[in-house]
Computed example of a mutant assay.
Amino acid sequence: MSQVTIGENEGIESGLRRFKRQVSKAGIFAELKRLRHHETPVEKYKRKLQQRLRQRRK
């Protein structure tokens, strides 16, 4: 769960921008999209391949 604390002199827009960036990095939208739609075997293979490549880089 992502959470952003907005400072006293900080605008709502910048806080919203930080929240969106944090959610994007956490992969929440990708997970939602994956759970909502049917995944073909080819898409599943490509997704797992991308995960392995990401893990190898770390």
Rank of each mutant, 00 (worst) to 15 (best):
V23L: 02
E43P: 04
G7P: 07
I12E: 12
F29H: 08
F19S: 05
K58A: 10
I12Q: 12
G11Q: 10
F29Q: 11
G27N: 01
G15D: 03
S2Q: 06
L16I: 15
A26P: 05
I12M: 13
E31L: 01
R47I: 04
Q50H: 11
V42L: 15
E39Y: 07
R18V: 03
R36G: 08
V23E: 00
R36K: 15
R17S: 13
G11L: 07
V23Y: 00
F29A: 09
V42D: 14
K25G: 04
Q22V: 01
R54D: 08
A30D: 10
K58V: 11
G27I: 00
I12T: 10
G27A: 03
F29V: 08
S2F: 00
R52C: 02
N9L: 09
L16P: 04
L16H: 07
G11F: 05
L32V: 09
G27H: 01
S14V: 15
R18E: 03
L49H: 11
P41A: 07
S2D: 01
R47G: 00
L32R: 04
I6N: 03
R36Q: 15
G15R: 00
K20L: 11
G11P: 04
R36L: 13
R21M: 11
E43T: 06
K20D: 07
R47K: 09
L32C: 10
E31N: 02
K44L: 11
E39V: 06
R36E: 15
P41V: 04
R34I: 02
R17G: 06
F29W: 10
K20R: 14
G27Q: 00
L35V: 06
Q3K: 14
G7S: 07
G11K: 11
E43K: 12
R34Y: 08
H38Q: 15
L53H: 11
G15C: 05
E39C: 07
T40N: 08
S24Y: 05
T40K: 01
L35F: 06
S2R: 03
E31G: 00
G27T: 00
K33N: 14
K44Y: 10
R52Y: 00
L16V: 15
E31M: 02
K33R: 13
F29C: 08
E13F: 08
F29S: 09
A30Q: 10
R56W: 04
G15T: 01
P41Q: 09
R18Q: 03
L16G: 04
I28A: 03
F19C: 07
R34T: 04
R47F: 02
I6R: 13
Q22F: 00
R47P: 01
S14K: 09
R21Y: 09
V42K: 15
